[in-house]
Design a protein around this nucleic acid. Sequence first.
DNA 1: CGTTAACCGAGACGGTACGTCTTGTCTTCTT
DNA 2: AAGAAGACAAGACGTACCGTCTCGGTTAACG
Lengths: 209, 209, 209, 209
Amino acid sequence: MATQSSKQSAPDTTRRSEKSRRAIYDAALGLVAEVGYPKTTIEGIAARAGVGKQTIYRWWSSKAEVLMEAFLDLSEQAAREAGPEETYTIADTGDLAADLKAVLRLTVDQLKDPRFEAPSRALAAEGVVNEQVGRAFMAKLLEPSLQLYVDRVRAAQDAGQVRPEIDPRIALELWVSPLAQRWLQYTGPITYDYTDTLVDYALHGIAPR
Amino acid sequence: MATQSSKQSAPDTTRRSEKSRRAIYDAALGLVAEVGYPKTTIEGIAARAGVGKQTIYRWWSSKAEVLMEAFLDLSEQAAREAGPEETYTIADTGDLAADLKAVLRLTVDQLKDPRFEAPSRALAAEGVVNEQVGRAFMAKLLEPSLQLYVDRVRAAQDAGQVRPEIDPRIALELWVSPLAQRWLQYTGPITYDYTDTLVDYALHGIAPR
Amino acid sequence: MATQSSKQSAPDTTRRSEKSRRAIYDAALGLVAEVGYPKTTIEGIAARAGVGKQTIYRWWSSKAEVLMEAFLDLSEQAAREAGPEETYTIADTGDLAADLKAVLRLTVDQLKDPRFEAPSRALAAEGVVNEQVGRAFMAKLLEPSLQLYVDRVRAAQDAGQVRPEIDPRIALELWVSPLAQRWLQYTGPITYDYTDTLVDYALHGIAPR
Amino acid sequence: MATQSSKQSAPDTTRRSEKSRRAIYDAALGLVAEVGYPKTTIEGIAARAGVGKQTIYRWWSSKAEVLMEAFLDLSEQAAREAGPEETYTIADTGDLAADLKAVLRLTVDQLKDPRFEAPSRALAAEGVVNEQVGRAFMAKLLEPSLQLYVDRVRAAQDAGQVRPEIDPRIALELWVSPLAQRWLQYTGPITYDYTDTLVDYALHGIAPR
DNA sequence: CGTTAACCGAGACGGTACGTCTTGTCTTCTT
DNA sequence: AAGAAGACAAGACGTACCGTCTCGGTTAACG
């Protein structure tokens, strides 16, 4: 005899329509890019994806969640397109400053890539006001990138280029956070010069040496 | 300049009801604190303020704008309650590190003040996704505070405690932005220790001296 | 100070939009006639009337209620178009049989009038399954017509053409109900001959005299 | 007759699951009785019967059709439980009035039997608005009962208790239809007195003898 | 000091989207 | 091949807000 579950039994993942999922990702990213996050609606996504609303509600619980997965998928796809080693480490040429500047320049480019701009802004914004989304955004999108900096700084510490008592997790915020804030809050222009300067300040401080 | 009559002529500011404005501010702040920004609606604000919806639409063009003014009003009020000189300058004891740490500790406290938390998060979030709001948020709320740091850093440069070629506008981001990001994006805990560390790293860098 | 009513205060009838109400009546009757009652939806009525759904839900609580009022309105309109005395009485020529046959022939015509057919069928059907609607249908639509028969039969009793112990309320069912059932349940054809026969049977019975 | 393949070929009746059919009948009747016809859904029937939706759609084309068969089945069952001869004829004691009154009293009882009430109302209602269902309802459920009255009236005609020119098919409507209408449309109370009166009026008319 | 033009509270209006429910079809796996 | 299960596209449900509009009433500046 079957389970007479009153209501929501979890949907059966094995029977999920891959086609629909892809269409929903595409529709969500497209709409966010074209009309912006607030005007992107679940109904709109469903219509554009040629999908019933229920198919969205069955698998996600909110617009933010859909967009999060869509964006993660997009990121993975982009990572796959780029080289395989590229994404999982920061180059170590022995020159910490140079290496950091190089990565930050790539980040600047990415922040201006229109494919990424709209959805990541939207997710960041949602995360500010919705802690659950914020923590998910942190864990799934930010954390992996930050860890690369931690690794690189640790290597620099081993090489004697960074003081051993420095906490890498905090150190990286000296260049990551300023960039993030300028991007998120329009607190200043974002240029290669700017990120280069950040690295210099972070490495040597602002006090006389 | 003439009447920019697209439909309605501009409302007459002199006849504006002070009582209604106050009630709307209170209602907006109260609702954002109690139910969160997304669930705060113009209808809700109007109802709670005992005000017609049109009275809101007459003077503001969006929920964000209402909240922005309400929050500015709240900030001014709070500033008035605190000392008069307190707010318009950062103490200069001659010890830059100590002065910065002191201010940042106050900031930490303020970030955790529930009266400020909800509305400023909401505005920040809205600003991320809505550039107009973002720039207004920057200009009206952030910029004045940041300017205090610029002034203090300049004084330190004059006193020879900061290298002269350092750009104060960027320098301040070394401690402000990390704190801001942790607060906005839940990327880490916010403590006095943390802000103290930020100041130390910012002043002396992470490289061996 | 105003009534801080938690929710549904009754809507203000004086500010009701006459235009919307008329448009809703027309749309409801039109749709029921064109696509049938089950496929007539509140959304469809609203769309066709160029009206927000809430405007329907504000004033009516169900599709059936809308249609009931629309149909009542239609009936009143039709009555106004016909003569004024016509509708409020059954002619008394002194010949009960002839008078009844005449009215029933009119009824037969009306039952076949496509303007009336669809909505009255729909309401009757809804009334069968929904007692509240059924009683309202009876009270507002059927009862007034039936009363005319009661009056005519009473007059016939006074004239000695109907036995005094006869209950007019039951007597009228001898011709009204058969016609109603044939119409409602497709239990037989509806013709002038048929209604004439009903009147004859009803007046003199089926037993030998 | 050929395979009416529009999409699927006709299902193979020989392999049909008797258990499922019974479960579906029970579920349909149960739900109609408990929550009413409009709230009875195909999904609900399938769930309650522990049956896939397709199993219903395979064998029936609508909710009404399911209920019709379920109700027919119920009626046959009830008939089998009662005596065998009881149901297929109306007693002929020689006294037409008494015989009709007796049967009508039984009908009154049956109309109030909760097992029959809900589904037969539902089917009647559906039939009012859906001619196909209406005609099926008439043919399968009403007609057989009405035929019994035709037979009994014919016998009475042979016995000289009913005028020979009377059409039995119309005559029976003099008592059946009023009762039906009171039941369907809540146009009046249903009592033994009432049905007795109907028979009297029908036999002797309302005019002075 | 009365007229009058505006703001005001209130809330009806045409809309859009919400999240849920059901329809009828389709697909997968089981019996 | 029928059946149990349930995902799917479609679309209506009734609710909540949007931003606009109209309606008295009240209130402050002007004539």
